[in-house]
Computed example of a mutant assay.
Amino acid sequence: MPGLAVLVVCVCAPFAVHSANQGGFVPSVERLGSLPPDLAFTERPGAGPSCGSGACAASFDVRGRPGETAEQVADRMRRDLAGQGWRLDAEGQGCRPVGWLTDCRSMCVWVGASGGGAWLSLEGARGYA
């Protein structure tokens, strides 16, 4: 009987974890942590969550305080994310793991400003294992 338990733990458990991490997930703003309360996120028109090739993406328009420019909103959001451990490159992009050990999925974030507005794009990707 102990041999069966070892078989289940060594063979079935890794298979179950691997299978659970095969698909992408629709990321949400809440997964980013505690963002400044004066930022408002609105799903971008016509850019609802979409999935394909092991990843799902969602895009949002971001509004800040009255009178704050789009670039100021984007810069503030980049600084806040960096303060929470996100490593963003010069273009405001960065990825990191979602979980630990059994959850090998990753989440990527892009923050920017263009066309008079700040925006945020998120991608939830399948596991790397």
Rank of each mutant, 00 (worst) to 15 (best):
residue 124 G to T: 06
residue 88 L to S: 03
residue 88 L to Y: 02
residue 80 D to I: 01
residue 126 R to S: 09
residue 90 A to G: 14
residue 115 G to L: 09
residue 27 P to Q: 02
residue 88 L to H: 02
residue 30 E to Y: 13
residue 26 V to N: 00
residue 31 R to Y: 12
residue 59 S to G: 12
residue 22 Q to W: 10
residue 65 R to W: 05
residue 63 R to K: 06
residue 18 H to P: 03
residue 109 V to R: 11
residue 30 E to N: 13
residue 11 V to L: 14
residue 31 R to T: 05
residue 28 S to N: 01
residue 18 H to V: 10
residue 73 V to S: 10
residue 41 F to L: 02
residue 108 C to G: 05
residue 13 A to I: 15
residue 100 W to C: 10
residue 12 C to Y: 15
residue 112 G to D: 04
residue 120 L to A: 01
residue 84 Q to A: 15
residue 91 E to S: 11
residue 35 L to M: 08
residue 20 A to N: 11
residue 111 V to D: 08
residue 32 L to W: 01
residue 127 G to L: 04
residue 27 P to V: 02
residue 102 T to G: 08
residue 128 Y to D: 11
residue 34 S to H: 15
residue 71 E to F: 10
residue 2 P to R: 14
residue 102 T to I: 14
residue 90 A to W: 05
residue 47 A to H: 13
residue 51 C to D: 02
residue 53 S to Y: 09
residue 22 Q to M: 07
residue 111 V to N: 09
residue 18 H to D: 14
residue 52 G to R: 06
residue 48 G to Y: 11
residue 103 D to S: 15
residue 105 R to Q: 08
residue 127 G to I: 06
residue 76 R to M: 01
residue 71 E to H: 11
residue 29 V to K: 11
residue 74 A to F: 15
residue 57 A to I: 03
residue 35 L to K: 13
residue 15 F to I: 00
residue 90 A to K: 14
residue 59 S to C: 12
residue 36 P to K: 00
residue 123 E to C: 07
residue 39 L to T: 03
residue 64 G to I: 07
residue 9 V to T: 10
residue 3 G to K: 14
residue 50 S to K: 13
residue 123 E to M: 13
residue 14 P to L: 07
residue 4 L to Y: 12
residue 27 P to G: 03
residue 113 A to Y: 09
residue 28 S to E: 08
residue 18 H to A: 13
residue 9 V to E: 04
residue 52 G to E: 06
residue 97 P to G: 05
residue 35 L to V: 06
residue 61 D to W: 09
residue 86 W to Y: 01
residue 45 P to Y: 06
residue 12 C to Q: 14
residue 96 R to A: 13
residue 22 Q to G: 14
residue 52 G to T: 01
residue 98 V to S: 07
residue 95 C to Q: 04
residue 43 E to T: 14
residue 98 V to L: 02
residue 55 A to H: 07
residue 112 G to E: 01
residue 1 M to G: 13
residue 65 R to H: 04
residue 67 G to S: 05
residue 62 V to E: 03
residue 90 A to L: 02
residue 28 S to A: 12
residue 92 G to L: 07
residue 12 C to G: 15
residue 55 A to T: 02
residue 8 V to C: 13
residue 35 L to Y: 06
residue 62 V to R: 03
residue 3 G to P: 12
residue 100 W to M: 10
residue 68 E to V: 07
residue 54 G to F: 00
residue 83 G to D: 04
